[in-house]
Computed example of a mutant assay.
Amino acid sequence: MLKKVEQNRDLWELFTKKEEYNAALLDKYGRFPYYLSRQRNVFEPEVSEFLLKNGLNPEYPEGKKFAVCLTHDIDFVYIDTLNTAARTVKALKRGQFAEASMLPFSRINKTWNPLWNFRRIMDLEEKYGAKSTFYFLTLDPGNEDFTFSIEELEGELGYILEEGWEVGLHGGHEAYNNLIEIKKKKQKLEKVLGEKVMGYRNHYLRFKTPETWELLADAGFSYDSTFGYHDCAGFRNGMCHPFKPYNLKTGKEINILELPLTIMDTTLFQSQMRLDFEHAWALTEMLILTVERCRGVLTVLWHNTYMQGEYLVFYKKLLQHCSEKGAWMAPGIQICNWWKEEYDSQG
């Protein structure tokens, strides 16, 4: 089917992201941002629409209309001292005396810690018939952004797996461009987990096209879910379906599946978009409708740090809306395995 896309030069260059190869301008994290792209139609999955017109016909389990890949990047599991003090003061001002008394001791009693919330997230998703993927950092002391040791979470990781959710690797700052680092962090997570880790997303969405895909394939991952713009929601290469990337340098497909990232919480509310809740929901609803129309996969990243206040209300609204639309809401590895079967059957 890719042969048909290859015959359309504009779509082929969009699909392969030719403009990102050896890009001269990148941001301070080595990322290719949307604002530097020639692509101006990021909210329309042009390549997926072309594929649908040319024979792609995905049918999801149990007759579901489209799929939603729910994911959470776990960068923090503790509140730092300053944030704990600030939260305690706010709780006192609101008259929430029980919360105010628990916060200072949240490192001792994990159930009082608002960021040790994996089971609460799972309970919420279960109400809507959904399951998700948790991507965990496995940094070492001294690594940039080190805040916790993965060994501390062994019990939680086991619980997540036992209940049918997925544990994936959240690669640190340098992993996207370093095979040794990727393998080291993967092995560290697998040692704690006691199982192979098949799913990946890089910290800060750091990514180098097409090299990062090649490194992840060499490291033994089944799929990646990093490929989305950090500064704009939408469809980075015109795809709202999983795809095998194509390396223009080698002229070959890369042996890994990409579940392209569509929506990230910090992209909507921070980054360059800085939307209020009303406009963020209008955009989210439009993207859901677009993916539904294309019978595609909507990949959502909602950090565990955003599972509170109005951000939590927003996430609940997203779950309810997708549930009412009959979406298949599943972890990345389930979608990956299903798509590979479907892809093979359709050639």
Rank of each mutant, 00 (worst) to 15 (best):
P260A: 12
D80E: 13
E6M: 14
K244F: 15
L248W: 04
D140S: 13
L179N: 05
N41L: 08
L287G: 10
L248H: 05
E19D: 10
I256R: 09
E166I: 10
T250D: 06
K18S: 13
H173G: 01
L56A: 13
E154C: 00
M239P: 05
A219M: 07
E125S: 05
Y159K: 01
I335F: 02
Y135H: 15
K18V: 02
N22K: 12
Y176E: 07
N41T: 12
T16P: 06
F146A: 08
K127N: 13
R201K: 13
K4A: 13
Y176A: 12
M122Q: 11
N202C: 11
T138E: 01
L157T: 00
E49Q: 15
Y306M: 12
L157V: 00
S101G: 05
H303G: 03
C322L: 05
A85P: 00
M264R: 05
F235A: 08
E166K: 06
G332F: 01
Y128S: 01
F66D: 01
L26I: 11
I256T: 12
V297R: 04
F146S: 06
L268T: 11
E190T: 08
I160C: 04
L215I: 05
I263P: 06
A282Y: 06
T111Y: 03
A91L: 04
D344Y: 05
F148R: 02
G220N: 10
G332D: 03
R119Q: 13
W213D: 07
S101N: 03
N237W: 03
K252G: 07
S48P: 06
Y135D: 04
L289G: 09
Y306N: 14
H173E: 12
L289W: 01
G158V: 00
Q320V: 01
A280F: 05
E125C: 09
K3A: 13
K196Y: 02
R120K: 15
W281I: 09
A327H: 08
H241C: 02
N177T: 05
K316A: 07
E59H: 10
E163L: 08
D73C: 03
Y229A: 00
S225V: 07
K188N: 09
D123T: 01
G220A: 10
I160G: 00
G168T: 12
K3W: 03
Y176S: 11
T299M: 06
L189I: 07
K196T: 14
E99V: 14
H241I: 13
A282L: 14
M1R: 01
A86N: 07
Y60V: 05
K188I: 04
T284Y: 09
S37I: 02
N337P: 00
L268F: 10
L36E: 12
M1V: 09
W12E: 06
T138R: 01
E258Q: 13
N178R: 10
Y229G: 01
G142I: 00
Q96T: 00
D145L: 04
K110C: 01
P45T: 09
D224S: 15
K186S: 06
E342V: 02
I263L: 14
R206I: 08
D10S: 15
F221N: 10
E195S: 14
